[in-house]
Structures are given as structure tokens and as C-alpha cells.
Design a protein around this nucleic acid. Structure first.
Length: 557
RNA sequence: GCCGCCUUGGUCAAGAGGUUAAGACGCAGCCCUCUCACGGCUGAAUCAUGGGUUCGAUUCCCGUAGGCGGUACCA
């Protein structure tokens, strides 16, 4: 039979049979309902929020159902490979709590369904390509780039769908002899799928035939069937994404294929490939994409590696966002009912949230930094100060070594971080590491610096206020006694004891007690705004407190 | 160009053939208050558009527009 001969001619190497591979990779022995998902990044060495977003869906689905989540390196495009990329992928996802059960790893593969790197699976793909050729479902194509360009030009002139299909697929029905001759002439070739689809322009009134695919996030998709003779095996003997996806996800027994919506247009190709190979379709989950507003055009667009370095995962790490905050943020945009759940379960770990594909939005969300910050405040509040200390210390080691000395006195820093966090209405001052360091900088003499001017109302009396304050200062005063003294100073110098009195009769006072305490606050913290002064003083200690006041006094002189 | 997906306030969004169209972030104001933060209250702000179907449509259907994506021997 010619096709068998053709297949042998094309693939002379020793290959396993499809049956052997089926036996090597048996159905997984997993409980009912367990999902098998995978992440298939190409090793470009760059991960951004969008990658995390998708990975998170895979991870939740697998781990929530007692299934398996594995990593497969999709490096069928050798031009994209960047040294060290696999490590970047694994470590940056790990930082955000995303761990693989199986697949490619730093010290080799884990799991029985490998190899997990596509560039090393050549023989597997060729086995199945050969099978398709034998069955007349694929064929070698010797068209050169130039010839394809000419075909395209002709198609454009004829206003017909560009691509290799129907009569434009000139090698489609070549005889064995024709192929042999081309081969003997040393012509390079690719293998194309011999599509059964009816070209859209040949369908007439009825329109193209439709395929129906159930998508876990979009419901039933109805799309025109494929009719392109798509390349499945490149000249190099390595498959295209389309073919690798189908073979790998079948052999690796993936149950749910989570990928971005940019794959939607090629879904019909995948469906035809699954059919031709006689395999069941996985459940597809085409996720919406994270978007951002392009500064140049002012329009929405997909996140881009090139243009959005600030959306890279390392950016968030370097700013010191806590991984849990990023996870919660992603959860809120992934599942619309998450915030509601969080409100009802304020202390539950996020893992307890029942994540579902049905609650995922099918339209793309804009990345919202405000929202991330807001969520981060709440997340950090749930983390004990001791843990926060460790988190900040690790962050500083990697991204801000200039602050390493802040971690010398652990007790001091822990007290600072815990300030006001245990009240009935806890403070939410802490957002991310860089911001936290800035926020607490005045606790450290080398970082302390005056930022705000004295308040107008009390500037003239600043010296007097400070000297009286220093004279009456008793570190053992409780906060009531302490504030009583400030009030006394205020009254003695002609300020209202209560802001309301001043508001009612501004003409009777120079200002109010708030202005007086602001003078003290600025001397101590260099800022007009801060948490409770008494508490800060207790943390700073008497010596530092007195020194700060004295220094300002000297300066005011 | 062609093909596909998407479209509720500035952002994330719930929602149903008849609702005063939830909630969150952000924004404004007020309250609390020695400042800020927290918290509370109030407010401004949304169903892209045209045409059907219907007693009634933001919701269902068709068209249009806009956004996004695809149109590779990239993924």
C-alpha cells in the first residue's frame, strides 16, 4: 500500500508503535473527579502576572480535586530558548505558592509520563505523525517559503481565505514517485495535516460546518470546522504547538487544558487532530486575559512581556508584595464570588475557597493596582508580626540589602510592625515591603529625616512647646497622663484644649491641641501624620525620644 | 481584509424578561478623632448602539460599532 510505503520512506528511523506508547502511559489511577492539569510555558525566561494568573487556575483545579498538576516545557521553537529559563519559571511560581506535583524540574523530571520537555520527545511525535501518514491523514509538503508567499498573493488577489488548503495544497495528492523524486533531489519538507474540512468558500448557502466544543469557562463553543492543511511537523522533525499539544495532553492524560483565549482561533485544528488520532478531547478552559491600558495609545491591550516589565513577577517581588496578597488579588479577578466568600470567612486560608471554572469571567480584566494594594493591607493584617519580620528580612536580603541593618534588633522591629494591629479597629498601614520601610523609617536614626513643615498655627511657638514638653516628659506616664500634659501646654500657650472649641471660636485661640501635638509629632517623626505618638515613644524608648526632641529644639534655636 | 472571542459605573463585577440594577476598589462629603490610618454614614457614577420578538428588554434574536485576539515551519 502506497501510504505505508510513503510513511516508511519519510520515517526510516526505528520508532515505537502508537500502541507501545499507549501502554507506557496508561490512564492515571486517580479518584473520580480528580483533574489533571498542566502548565506549558515556553522557556523565554520571563514570567508576568498573566502567566501566574493562568498557572493559578491549573493549580487550584488540580489540587482542589486531588489531581495532578505538572510542568511541561514547550520549547518546540528553539529560537525562544533562554538559558536558565526553567529555573525562573519554577522559582517564581514557587514564591507565589504554586508547586508542581510532576514534570520538568531543576534536577530532572519527576513522574511517569515524561519526558516533560518537548524538544526531547521527537520520536514520540514522529510515531504519531507516521501513523497519520500511513492512514492518509497527513502528507509531506515540499512547498518553499517563496512558493507559499506566491500562493498567498494569489489568494489575496482572488479574495479567498489565505493558507494551504484544497487546490492550493499542491503536494496533497502527490504520488509516491513524486515524493521520492523530491526526496532524492534533497528537497526539505514538512508534514501537513490532510484536513477533511470543507473550505468556507465551498460551503455555499449552508455555510461552513460547525464544531461544538464544551468549554468550562465559556460554555458550548460553536466554531467553523478547520479546513487548513496545517503544518504538524516542521522541517526540523519537531512538531508545531498544535500537534505537540494534542499528543502530549493525550499521552500525559491531561483532563483539563487551561490556556489563554488567544488559542481559541486554533481550537478547530486541535479538534480535528484529536479526531484523526482517535482520541477524546480534554476539557478546555479558555481563560480571559489580563489586560492593561497602554500608555501610548490609551487603549486596553493584552499584557506584554516586552512592554510591561512592571508586570513581571520579579517586579512584584522586588517591591515586596507578599505572595499571599498577589494570590488573593488574582483570586478576586478569577472568581467573582471570592470577595464575598472572604468577607464571610475572614480568617480562613484562601485554599479553602471552592474555586470553580464556571465563575470565571470570559472577558478580560484590567489589572488594578489599587485593588491589589487594598487587598494586601488586609492580607498583611492576618500575618503575625514575627512572620512579617521574616518576610521583610528575606525580601531585604534579595532586593534591598541597604536595609539589612534594620533587622539587627528583632524585638524592636517586631514591635514596630505590630503597632496598632491588635485594636478593635486595627490599623492597616502596611502594604508591601518597600512601602513599609518608608512608612516606619523614622524609627531608625539613620533613616529619620524631617519631611513636613511645622503647622502654621503653632510654628511660632514650636520652640516653647518642645521645651515645655521635654521638661514635663515622663516616660512612665500612661497615655492618659501623657496627653493631659500636652493639653496643659496647649492651654497655657493659648491653644484650645479641644479642636471643636477652636472651630467654634477660632478668634479666641492660636490653634488647638492638635496643632500642638503636631509640633511634637514632627520633632519626633519628621511627619505631620503618624500613628499614635505615645505608643511610638514607648517603642522608641526614652533615650531616643528625648534625643529627637532635643535635636529639634537645638535646630529651632 | 478575513475569522474568532468579548461588551453592566473610572476599575473588578452580581443580576434577572417586570429589581429603587447588589457588592468591592477608587473618588467626594460627613461622623469618629490630638494627626494619619482604621471604622461608620452619605453621595456622584453603569446596562455600547440600531432594529426586531414581547403587554414589557439592560436581559432573547439580528445587524452595527468598539475592544481584544488569531490569521506562521511562534507559542
Amino acid at each position: 500500500m502506497d501510504q505505508k510505503k510513503l510513511a516508511d520512506l519519510l520515517f526510516s528511523e526505528e520508532l515505537k508503535t502508537p500502541e507501545e506508547y499507549e501502554a507506557m502511559y496508561p490512564l492515571r489511577n486517580l479518584p473520580e473527579g480528580a483533574m489533571v492539569t498542566r502548565l506549558g510555558p515556553s522557556p523565554t525566561g520571563f514570567m508576568h502576572l498573566g502567566n501566574l494568573y493562568g498557572a493559578f487556575v491549573d493549580e487550584r483545579l488540580a489540587h482542589q480535586s486531588g489531581g495532578v498538576f505538572f510542568l511541561r516545557i514547550e520549547d518546540t521553537d528553539d529560537k525562544r530558548f533562554v538559558e536558565g529559563a526553567v529555573e525562573v519559571i519554577i522559582s517564581s511560581l514557587d514564591f507565589f505558592g504554586i508547586r508542581f506535583d510532576e514534570g520538568a524540574g531543576l534536577s530532572g523530571d519527576r513522574g511517569a509520563y515524561g519526558d516533560y520537555t518537548q524538544s526531547r520527545r521527537g520520536p514520540i511525535y514522529r510515531t504519531f505523525v507516521k501513523k497519520l501518514v500511513e492512514e492518509g491523514k497527513a502528507y509531506p509538503c515540499f512547498l518553499t517559503e517563496e512558493e507559499i508567499g506566491q500562493i498567498r498573493a494569489r489568494q489575496e488577489a482572488e479574495k479567498v481565505t489565505p493558507g494551504i488548503w484544497g487546490e492550493y495544497a499542491v503536494c496533497r495528492d502527490w504520488s509516491l514517485d513524486q515524493v521520492k523524486a523530491a526526496l532524492d533531489a534533497g528537497k526539505p519538507f514538512v508534514i501537513r495535516l490532510k484536513s477533511d474540512g470543507v473550505p468556507a468558500e465551498r460551503c455555499g448557502e449552508a455555510g461552513p460546518r460547525k464544531i461544538r466544543v464544551k468549554d468550562a469557562v465559556r460554555g458550548t463553543l460553536e466554531m467553523p470546522e478547520n479546513f487548513m492543511d496545517t503544518v504538524i511537523l516542521k522541517q526540523t522533525g519537531i512538531p508545531t504547538y498544535h500537534f505537540a499539544h494534542v499528543v502530549d495532553d493525550h499521552l500525559m492524560r491531561t483532563t483539563h487544558v487551561v490556556r489563554g483565549a488567544e488559542w481559541l482561533p486554533s481550537l478547530p485544528i486541535h479538534v480535528e487532530l484529536f479526531e484523526k488520532l482517535g482520541w477524546d478531547l480534554p476539557v478546555y478552559c479558555h481563560t480571559a486575559q489580563l489586560m492593561k491600558i497602554d500608555e501610548e495609545t490609551g487603549k486596553k491591550r493584552k499584557l506584554s512581556k516586552r512592554k510591561d516589565p512592571e508586570l513581571s513577577l520579579t517586579y512584584y517581588r522586588s517591591q515586596g508584595y507578599h505572595p499571599e496578597a498577589v494570590r488573593e488579588y488574582l483570586l478576586t479577578i478569577l472568581n467573582s464570588n471570592y470577595e464575598e466568600w472572604r468577607a464571610a470567612n475572614p480568617d480562613a486560608p484562601a485554599e479553602d475557597f471552592p474555586f470553580t471554572t464556571g465563575k470565571m469571567s470570559s472577558s478580560g480584566a484590567l489589572f488594578d493596582l489599587n485593588k491589589l494594594n487594598d487587598i494586601s493591607k488586609d492580607v498583611l493584617l492576618r500575618i503575625p508580626a514575627e512572620d512579617l519580620y521574616e518576610f521583610l528580612k528575606d525580601w531585604s536580603r534579595d532586593y534591598a540589602p541597604e536595609y539589612s541593618h534594620l533587622f539587627d534588633d528583632r524585638d524592636y522591629l517586631v514591635k514596630i510592625l505590630d503597632l496598632g494591629r491588635h485594636d478593635k479597629k486595627p490599623r492597616k498601614d502596611l502594604v508591601y515591603a518597600r512601602q513599609i520601610i518608608r512608612f516606619i523609617s523614622y524609627f531608625f536614626d539613620d533613616l529619620f529625616q524631617p519631611e513636613d513643615p511645622m503647622p502654621e498655627e503653632a510654628a511660632a511657638d514650636a520652640r516653647e512647646i518642645l521645651s515645655r514638653y521635654l521638661a514635663s516628659y515622663d516616660h512612665s506616664d500612661d497615655s492618659g497622663e501623657w496627653f493631659g500634659k500636652i493639653r496643659q501646654i496647649a492651654v497655657d500657650l493659648g491653644y484650645a484644649a479641644k479642636p471643636k472649641d477652636f472651630k467654634k471660636h477660632p478668634e479666641e485661640y492660636k490653634g488647638h491641641v492638635g496643632h500642638v501635638s503636631t509640633v511634637i509629632r514632627i520633632a519626633l517623626m519628621g511627619r505631620a501624620q503618624s500613628p499614635d505618638v505615645w505608643t511610638i515613644q514607648q517603642i522608641m524608648g526614652e533615650e531616643r525620644t528625648r534625643a529627637r526632641i532635643q535635636a529639634r529644639l537645638d535646630q529651632e534655636a
